[in-house]
Design a protein around this nucleic acid. Structure first.
Lengths: 233, 233
DNA sequence: ATGTGTGAACGTATTCACAGCC
DNA sequence: GGCTGTGAATACGTTCACACAT
């Protein structure tokens, strides 16, 4: 078991539970920074060093790491290797994750061959597409299977995470099928809102949305007197 | 198009200034939902209808829209067409944006041919890559140009937005060059933190990070007694 | 001396709840 | 009656600042 700590002798098992979402979203950044520090031979790092590498505030780093029940050393910093292992464990990265990819259009194929996934322990287990013209094609080291076989594929490959790269108008339908097939986490690249049961985790990556946000800032920057009158007369 | 509005004949100049970031990030969602409603012939929508379509709370919708100084009609709702124009104007989407894409690897090529960009007014103006083997290739309707010509290309195409799809270890260097070339907004797909001057807007899309966040939730869901002890002694 | 861990202060975002208008 | 617009209440996230450990 873990820690002997517990000021008053209560049972503290790996402080699971209750890591704020905002912190969870930053853990991968810390992890990345720690791998870099590790590769360049650093054995310890201060909250400030880690903060700089990750592009955040040092108080943020300390607070975030405190949620992990992590033990830095006062006056010294954090042990890079230990912290790295710890964060990886919290994120569930001490195992491989097999991922189902649905939709092998341009984006889907790019994702299938994206090295960053495998590198971080995410392996594409199978590829599925609704288009009969695409079924049977080889992408990476897999053949595309028909969408109809979704349940079979999910069961066979025992995946719980799916990446959804289908057109917006198909997204909800496919998501429903994924859920009934037993998938519990979806990374959605389709520009559409997904309605899913409460116990399913969805993250969305919306490429156009991001550009639109940039456009907003550009518009404001350069608007000078490019009068942004909506139209009106 | 839309509105005679301005209840009292004042110049409605788009209430610029002071739209919270969180709201700006949701405007594209509303816009998308409004296009759908528009396409299916709806002329008005209530905050609740829009909320459902966008997957948020109706109070959120009203508060967000109130920042735009928008005029809904009590007891009725919002005029779909007008609201759509208004949000598009606020986001600066009443013009086309020419975008420079740096890095034509798998992801870069997928982005270059991603229809969702053009559809929303973002046109790839030029493609650039550091690899001489890729320079000269045709991707979409452009030829890849050498990274050395970055300044020339940025000036020639008059772009202010760049999409960065290069390997992590090249990201900072390329970002620096983009900034000196005059780019003021960067959409970063490289898994690396970018340090840029304060007046530059950066948004990042980190694919692996998203999967890692999903993994965290999966780990917690299924951990049962897969004891998540980090190691300890 | 140095740098963590954390309460307290602050700031931002979301949700409630209702007055006001159609 | 129905639905917006918004102050007030709440929840969440970030930063400060300092006691405490090494």
């Amino acid at each position: 078991m873990s820690g002997s700590d517990a000021p008053d002798g209560s049972d503290v098992v790996v402080d699971d539970r209750a890591i704020p979402d905002a912190t969870v979203a930053r853990l991968p950044l810390y992890l990345r920074a720690l791998y870099e520090l590790h590769d360049q031979g650093d054995e310890t790092v201060s909250s400030d060093g880690l903060a700089q590498a990750a592009g955040v505030n040092s108080a943020q780093v300390r607070k975030d790491l405190s949620y992990l029940g992590s033990h830095g050393v006062r006056g010294v910093g954090y042990a890079v290797g230990d912290l790295l292992d710890h964060i990886a464990a919290v994120l569930g990265l001490n195992r491989d994750w097999r991922v189902l990819l649905v939709g092998v259009g341009n984006l889907g194929r790019a994702l299938a061959s994206y090295g960053g996934f495998r590198e971080r322990g995410f392996k594409i287990a199978a590829l599925v597409d609704a288009d009969p013209g695409k079924v049977g094609r080889s992408v990476g080291d897999h053949q595309v299977e028909p969408l109809e076989d979704l349940d079979t594929v999910v069961a066979r490959e025992d995946v719980s995470i799916a990446v959804l790269a289908v057109p917006a108008d198909a997204a909800q339908t496919v998501a429903d099928r994924l859920v009934t097939a037993g998938v519990t986490a979806i990374l959605n690249f389709a520009p559409a809102h997904l309605e899913v049961p409460a116990h399913i985790t969805v993250r969305k990556v919306d490429l156009s949305t991001e550009l639109q946000i940039l456009a907003y800032h550009e518009r404001r920057r350069h608007q000078g007197r490019t009068t942004t009158v909506v139209d009106d007369g």
